[in-house]
Write a protein that binds this DNA or RNA. Sequence first.
DNA 1: GACGGGCATACTGTGCACATTATCGACGCT
DNA 2: AGCGTCGATAATGTGCACAGTATGCCCGTC
Lengths: 225, 225
Amino acid sequence: MAPGSKLPEHRLATIFGVSRERVRKVLHRLVAERRLERIPRRGTFVPNPSPEEIRTVYRAHRVFETGVLTQLVKELNDAMMSRIDAHLGEEREAASGADRAASVRLSGEFHVLLVDSLKSPELSHFLRELLARSSLMVSAFEPPRLSLCSVDEHAAIAEALKARNVERAIALSNEHFTHIEDRLAQGIVERVERRIEDALEPLVPVARGSSRKGRNRGPDPKARN
Amino acid sequence: MAPGSKLPEHRLATIFGVSRERVRKVLHRLVAERRLERIPRRGTFVPNPSPEEIRTVYRAHRVFETGVLTQLVKELNDAMMSRIDAHLGEEREAASGADRAASVRLSGEFHVLLVDSLKSPELSHFLRELLARSSLMVSAFEPPRLSLCSVDEHAAIAEALKARNVERAIALSNEHFTHIEDRLAQGIVERVERRIEDALEPLVPVARGSSRKGRNRGPDPKARN
DNA sequence: GACGGGCATACTGTGCACATTATCGACGCT
DNA sequence: AGCGTCGATAATGTGCACAGTATGCCCGTC
């Protein structure tokens, strides 16, 4: 699912074997959740996050988790702490097992675990939407290098929580999200550089192992699903 | 718009002079924003907020604004402070003029003003959804007595912000939302008491000025729009 | 008189077809 | 050769009609 690729309704309907109206409903819902973009009379597209959007999404993460942590230190109990420890154990296991998919999922669920303990469906729902967007950005721009969310950073936040040190927990959390944001920003410039390279290559013949002339540049317009 | 009343699609379509499909789109969007409730094969209804929902919504308000205020004291500048002062002036004017509609709108916009200054569409969007829900609760349960959000409480939060006193700003904000929540909780028990009274009246003849036997009890099923 | 089953009615859910509009290739012009 | 215009095509937006289902009323029975 390359960013910028179009999602034709009729195509999706035939692929999934459902009616086009059914597809429309789902697309509209995903657009409402800001997970897809819709241009009237043009179609729906998988969003191509701008650096500005990345900035505002992770800013939202920081502000939001600041509030969550502040409230959490006031009502943290033993049961909650043990749940956090259990989760950190799972994260470490997935990280050591090099199970990237599980690792990505679990590192998101760490933050979900924190907000869910506040027992407010509104807060939980908002975090899940934020996570869905940032996960999309990660899958789009994060280089293949592993360790997306460092388990150690999560563990450090948990330690500060146990110590009831609000300022430290907030500071660590803010740094944590800033780290992810910075890696994404780096990923996006690398991607832009590749784009420019690919675009210039057919024009100025560069000495390289294999010529890539004739290859499609940009998002493959035939990319489906 | 009484809580619990049904919103038939065809009825709304004829009232507003648009097609039923158009109405369906709008209803689905409002359901997605949690401003209406949908029961499959039954219809869409204006929600009847439970005390539990009121609790979680205002809990979300408190946690969220805690994060906003913490970030805001770090980047508050003169332009922002003067905007806040101007807004407080408007609020006072509306309150003194007994313009309840403007007063309600402006007291919500105070919190919008704060979050908008953080320049994160995600945060702004979330607060607007929260406000839409709490406004609905207020219009449903708040007794006719005025001063829904006291302007003084907003002013006190602003003062703490100017003084860069995070703890105090957070404490005042949390109390502020708790005040609203408590008034709503009181409103809901009064409403329940009225309901019980109305339901019992036809059974046990109470000495009163006018008998209400034969009147519809509960939400008027013919209530439209 | 109360309770349970059956029927009429109204409403929601869904697929379909038509109208509208953007896209893209070809053609002609400058 | 480049650019603008025009037409064909495909995809979106929207109204409509039919099917499925819950609701409320009425009647029969206990």
